[in-house]
């Protein structure tokens, strides 16, 4: 029996099919809907409507701010953890890492619901009543809780790859702890920071399940708009989705997300 030989081209076919049906065609459909009206005629009405509506622009701004705060808080928590774990000589550091990653294995709606209940019971304690209506705080808290593993993992893997002899070299050459950190660790962990930021920042702009459940549906982010428009007006919904796509594209581009690994390795910001 002859083993069929696959060329590189034929091996690409499954992914190419996937790409066409689940990425390219849906994108084209969104593009089509965004620039047509109810009679399917070409129309820039939705485009103009979006940019002349302070509500939509404000919501984009609010979403960006919420996503930004979430990302920064995630980074501040995750970086030290990843740093310590990567450099420690603990035998069981794998276990500690697992403890951070394990929540990802539990359905996130369940986790957010549990968090909601915890907040509820906390808010009924004396002196904690403010928590009940601190919707933005709760939303950001929930997002951080939800996305933290996505920040820790890439940071940890990047930092683990840093050759320990570089630290030794830095110390040998008279670098203090701070100098070593800022001139060796930080620049070399930049790729991890970048991928962590991308993985946290983008979803937290659209994850309206968190804002609905923890923000009492009083916090509206851009993802909720898209969801609501698809209940009544697909064209406007597609336009909002398209604009979000552009925002995402731009932010990925600026953060160097499209560059190949070698180039990013340097201090790229």
């Amino acid at each position: 029996m002859k083993i069929p030989r696959f060329s590189r081209k034929t091996l690409c076919i499954p992914y190419a099919v996937f790409l066409v049906f689940f990425v390219i065609i849906p994108m084209l459909v969104i593009l089509f809907y965004a620039f047509t009206d109810k009679e399917m005629h070409l129309s820039f009405h939705n485009f103009i409507r979006f940019f002349s509506d302070p509500t939509k622009l404000s919501t984009i701004v609010y979403s960006l701010v919420i996503a930004l705060i979430t990302t920064v808080v995630c980074l501040l928590i995750a970086y030290p953890v990843a740093y310590i774990l990567a450099r420690s000589t603990l035998k069981r550091k794998f276990v500690i890492l697992m403890l951070f990653v394990m929540p990802m294995w539990i359905n996130f709606v369940l986790r957010v619901n549990a968090l909601r209940e915890i907040f509820n019971s906390l808010a009924s304690a004396p002196g904690m009543e403010w928590l009940g209506s601190a919707n933005y705080f709760k939303t950001v808290f929930g997002m951080v809780y939800d996305f933290l593993p996505f920040m820790i993992l890439p940071l940890y893997t990047t930092m683990q790859k840093i050759d320990p002899s570089l630290y030794e070299a830095s110390a040998d050459l008279g670098g203090s702890g701070a100098t070593s950190f800022f001139r060796v660790t930080l620049p070399l962990s930049m790729p991890g920071i970048m991928s962590g930021v991308t993985m946290v920042f983008l979803p937290s702009m659209t994850n309206y399940v968190v804002s609905d459940m923890l923000g009492n549906a009083k916090v509206t982010i851009i993802g909720k708009f898209i969801y609501e428009y698809f209940g009544s007006d697909w064209h406007m919904g597609s336009m909002v989705a398209l604009i979000l796509l552009i925002v995402v594209f731009l932010s990925t581009w600026f953060s160097g997300g499209f560059k190949s690994e070698e180039n990013v390795r340097g201090a790229n910001l």
Binding site: P54, T55, K56, L57, S58, T220, F225, E228, Y229, S232
Partner: peptide, 24 residues
């Protein structure tokens, strides 16, 4: 329906002042 939905999105979302949007 379009009118009411627009009203709803204005209610649900926080709207910033025009100057704030411009500054941002």
């Amino acid at each position: 329906t379009v009118r009411i939905n627009e009203l709803w999105s204005r209610v649900k979302a926080e709207t910033l002042d025009a100057w704030a949007i411009i500054v941002i």
